[in-house]
Design a protein around this nucleic acid. Structure first.
Lengths: 225, 225
DNA sequence: GCATATATGATAGTAATACTATTATATTTG
DNA sequence: CAAATATAATAGTATTACTATCATATATGC
């Protein structure tokens, strides 16, 4: 069993047993991402995942009490990973406007493999987050899960970027709204570009989504360039 | 049986039998909206709906082949209804910028009852659309449904507002992205304000969501006011 | 090296879901 | 009044989303 050199921390209330603490746990994460990416959240079951990773339904249920909790885990891991990458992207960058631009780029751009975490295919995880993560909060358990702090990683990322906005303009009234609009919007536009292109405008050879949201944010804050 | 004086047209491929053509059909729509609003899409079943409207599971299946199609129907009805209201809001308004502002207000504001459709509680339908409608396209049937034209009403609304943007600035590169960002964003922010307030900024006594998106759009297009 | 604890596997069982099918009965229409 | 149609009533099926039990393999502490 190989533990990664850096470990992304996920709120322990999400799982019954830490999947980053065992071989089977790591296989559940890796296999869970790949299977969910392939067949989608609705068709995904622990029984199928058991077959995929050569284990059993019952064993997986010892790590997560439901597939909903597994989705929450994957989303949470993703947001914590994004924040970790954000810290790197902002390290030693002093200019607030430059910090903001780097943040918007990070949250709106395509994702690349990160060699630090062998048990996670980040490209597939990004696809899962784009296609499925809204189901982690668009359900009737949202208030209960929120009280248990299960959306903490997402809120923290939004808070980080909002703070940069407030550093630039302490009187701006809607920093969180602006940031969550960009994060959710970037996911939607990515999905639309692949499945409902009439709802977006994707131009060849350009990173249209990033360009759009970067410009939108700067203009919303009356900044140039 | 009372038919409404104006009928919202929904793509017939969504249903097996037109629910606007019979008493039971109207009860399915009305009861479906209210039950889905109460228990959420995941817990919603045709069996429970049958009990609610004093009919049976089997009878409801003669109108819709799945609850997914019923959700598509409700979403589609909602978008067609929004376009119908948009036509009224823009009637006899010539100034393109004023047309755009009215459009953004309409798609981002709270919804009120519309007396023209007795079989639909528009306030509840709006809640269903906010909480559940993204599940109508975030699933593995999306490409099939899209090819069958089942998202036509949504696309058409986006197209209408995009056309106003292009009238104001024919060179603007991202009209559809901007409009779908506002529509989806307004839904998200409404939901966040009720369940995940740290992801938004709601201020008392103001229509913060509309103010935010109106300002965002005008600035994105370099317009004043 | 052995007892013990722990992790996993194998198997079974349950209520509910998402349907399909059949038959009966009521209502409308020609 | 007969025939067509709509709805109700009932039953049945494979799958889902779990829970429970027991066996076995592996790791750990002494």
């Amino acid at each position: 069993m190989t533990l990664p050199s850096v470990a992304i921390q996920v709120n322990p209330s999400i799982y019954l047993k830490d999947p980053q603490s065992s071989d089977l746990g790591l296989k559940i994460i890796k296999g869970g991402i790949d299977l969910m990416e392939t067949i989608g959240f609705e068709a995904f079951t622990f029984k199928k995942l058991g077959q995929e990773i050569v284990s059993t339904e019952a064993s997986i249920y010892r790590y997560f009490e439901s597939k909903h909790k597994l989705l929450l885990y994957l989303s949470s891991w993703y947001w914590a990973w994004m924040e970790y990458r954000l810290m790197f992207a902002l390290a030693n960058v002093d200019c607030a406007q430059e910090r903001l631009k780097r943040s918007i780029r990070l949250i709106s751009q395509e994702v690349k493999e990160d060699g630090n975490f062998q048990h996670v295919n980040e490209v597939n995880l990004h696809k899962v987050v784009v296609s499925e993560s809204s189901k982690a909060y668009y359900n009737k358990e949202v208030d209960e899960d929120n009280e248990a702090g299960l959306y903490g990683a997402y809120k923290q990322l939004v808070s980080c970027v909002s703070d940069i906005i407030l550093e630039i303009d302490p009187n701006y009234k809607y920093p969180h709204m602006l940031v969550s609009t960009v994060i959710e919007g970037a996911h939607n536009q990515k999905y639309f570009s692949e499945h409902l292109p009439r709802l977006t405008d994707i131009l060849e050879g350009e990173d249209a989504i990033t360009e759009f949201y970067l410009s939108m944010v700067l203009k919303a804050l009356d900044l140039k360039e």
